[in-house]
Amino acid sequence: MAEPMKMRATVSGDVADVKVLMNHPMETGLRKDAKTGQLIPAHFINEVTATLNGKPVLAAQWGGGISKNPYLGFKVKGAKAGDKVVVSWKDNKGESNTAEATIS
């Protein structure tokens, strides 16, 4: 169901730069099916969390206004190469996915 996420974490100085690409349709619930004219039900990621070595660094709440196959970039100070970053998301249908990357 949930396809794997792409994730990359690099460090410059002591600031980690984390980039994540998620696979998700991000349906707002406002869009109509072109063929049937029926509304496509809302299906979007609404919660994203990130941890660095197990400590929470970023918690996000999203609406349907984030583009399809969302991209997220964030920076964390006090990180070093070898640290582990974990990003998880959860959508409005209760599906979820997690990816982890080691900072290089």
Binding site: A50, P56, V57, A59, A60, G65, I66, G73, F74
Partner: peptide, 28 residues
């Protein structure tokens, strides 16, 4: 926020434990 979207709030992020005041994403 995208001010003229039907529902303007797009995302809200909370930083902790050294996360910097920076986010990058793509919006509709």
């Amino acid at each position: 926020f995208a001010e003229k979207n039907a529902t303007p709030l797009i995302a809200s992020f909370t930083m902790s434990n050294g996360a910097e005041g920076y986010v990058s994403t793509r919006i509709k």
